[in-house]
Simulated scan of single mutants.
Amino acid sequence: MSGRADSDTPPDTHAEDPEGLEGPEDPEDPEDTGEADDAEGDARRARWAATGAGAVLALAGAAAALLRLTGPAPVLVPAAYACGAAACALAALLGSRGRTRRALWLLVAGLMVMALGDQFD
């Protein structure tokens, strides 16, 4: 072999496909569990994870905003918690619609806003 990317082995050295090793004949065979099923399951789990994490963090942020609102904290603190909770709620909505990457970044941004608001307390 010359090592070039366009080089190919001579035709007499190609392996012949023994009977049955190629795979199923029918691509619509229900017995065939391929990578498409795995990718679909991964996408479904990612949507559920983004939706669940967004909902939980939105509820936690809303509860923290209400608790900080009733206390002696400056107004900026509950406002930051409320904005972070709104961002997490939007992330839950995006996650349920399959926009999991954007939902992840929005969750991170919402948590950062909540953490920044906590620093003013």
Results as ranks from 00 to 15, higher is better:
Ser2Asn: 12
Gly3His: 09
Asp6Pro: 03
Ser7Asn: 06
Ser7Glu: 15
Asp8Ser: 09
Thr9Asn: 10
Thr9Ala: 13
Thr9Met: 11
Pro10Arg: 15
Pro11Asp: 15
Pro11Lys: 13
Pro11Phe: 10
Thr13His: 12
Thr13Trp: 14
His14Ile: 02
His14Pro: 00
Glu16Arg: 14
Asp17His: 03
Pro18Gln: 08
Pro18Phe: 10
Glu19Lys: 07
Gly20Trp: 06
Glu22Ile: 00
Pro24Ile: 02
Pro24Met: 11
Pro24Thr: 04
Pro24Asn: 04
Glu25Ser: 09
Glu25Asn: 04
Asp26His: 06
Asp26Ser: 05
Pro27Gln: 10
Asp29Trp: 09
Glu31Cys: 07
Asp32Arg: 15
Ala36Lys: 15
Ala36His: 15
Ala36Asn: 14
Asp38Thr: 07
Ala39Lys: 13
Gly41Trp: 14
Gly41His: 13
Asp42Cys: 02
Ala43Arg: 15
Arg44Asp: 14
Arg45Tyr: 06
Ala46Ser: 11
Ala46Trp: 13
Ala46Lys: 12
Arg47Leu: 03
Trp48Glu: 15
Trp48Cys: 05
Ala49Gly: 05
Ala49Trp: 09
Ala50Arg: 14
Ala50Val: 03
Ala50Lys: 10
Thr51Gln: 14
Thr51Ile: 01
Gly52His: 07
Ala55Thr: 14
Ala55Tyr: 13
Val56Glu: 12
Leu57His: 10
Ala58Phe: 09
Ala58Trp: 11
Leu59Gln: 12
Ala60Arg: 09
Ala62Trp: 11
Ala63His: 10
Ala64Cys: 06
Ala64Gly: 08
Leu66Asn: 11
Leu67Ile: 09
Leu67Asp: 15
Arg68Leu: 12
Arg68Asn: 07
Arg68Tyr: 05
Thr70His: 13
Gly71Glu: 14
Gly71Lys: 13
Pro72Ile: 06
Ala73Met: 12
Ala73Gln: 14
Pro74Val: 06
Val75Pro: 01
Leu76Phe: 04
Val77Asn: 07
Val77Cys: 06
Ala79Gln: 08
Ala79Cys: 02
Ala79Asn: 03
Ala80Tyr: 00
Tyr81Ala: 05
Tyr81Gly: 00
Ala82Leu: 14
Ala82His: 04
Cys83His: 02
Gly84Glu: 01
Gly84Phe: 00
Gly84Gln: 01
Gly84Trp: 00
Ala86Trp: 01
Ala87Ser: 07
Ala87His: 03
Cys88Lys: 03
Cys88Leu: 04
Ala89Trp: 07
Leu90Phe: 04
Ala91Phe: 02
Ala91Gln: 08
Ala91Lys: 07
Ala91Arg: 06
Ala92Leu: 06
Ala92Gln: 05
Leu93Ala: 08
Ser96Asn: 13
Ser96Cys: 10
Gly98Asn: 03
Gly98Asp: 03
Thr100Gly: 01
Arg101Ser: 02
Arg101Asn: 02
Arg102Leu: 09
Ala103Val: 00
Leu104His: 08
Trp105Leu: 11
Trp105Gly: 07
Trp105Arg: 13
Ala109Arg: 03
Leu116Cys: 07
Leu116Pro: 00
Gly117Val: 00
Gly117Tyr: 01
Asp118Phe: 05
Gln119Glu: 10
Phe120Leu: 11
Phe120Ser: 04
Asp121Gly: 05
